[in-house]
Amino acid sequence: MIKTAFLLAKKDLYSELKTKQVLTTMIIFAGLVILVFSFAFDPANNTTKAVIPGVIWVIVVFSGILGLNRSFLSEQRNDTMQGLLIAPMDASSIYLGKFLANFTMMLVVELVSIPFLFLLFDFKIIGSIPYFILIMFIGSFGFISIGTFLAALAANSKSSEMLLPLLLFPVTSPILIGVVQATRIILTNMEKFSSALAWIQLVSAYDVIFFVLCFLLIEYVLEV
């Protein structure tokens, strides 16, 4: 199953490497979000630093949803989804493959856009970078795992691009609350570290619960 999932993820990523459509769009979009934020909050003002943790996750959420939308819609052309469904593998392999591909792309976007954000807003990290990376990782993991699942669900609809955010945002709200709080503490106020740790635990618990749940339920979503 893992092998098949890697094969599927490789297929998606290789195709992305050829066209570079989705990744470019996501990164440019992330840049635009940063730009819009610089208009909304004066970068020269010192209080702006307080919104940076929030901006990071706005970037992740909005550029992430672009990628998630594509991930199952791209299989509709020539009905390639049928090709995957008749292949001898479980639905969970398809889910895992798509998840791996989306997660990789998400990490690439974060890797490019977040340093860029820090640079533009002249943000100096006073907290711990390893913990920051950990939070980015578990936050993106949860967001993409449930996002991939709901993208598969929404793909059944004609207007799935509009449906996906409506499904995804309320369901992921605990992750978003958790990671924004944790990011704020880690980046600006290490004194409350224990509280950040508690948030990290909450988000990790969410990740585990929903990853397992998605794994079990994806069979019903991809059923024909």
């Binding site: 297929k11 050829k18 066209t19 052309r77 020539n78 009905d79 390639t80 090709g83 008749i86």
Partner: peptide
């Protein structure tokens, strides 16, 4: 199985 559509990846 060979349906109406090709089931091939365009790129």
């Amino acid at each position: 199985y060979l349906p109406h559509s090709s089931l091939l990846y365009d790129h």
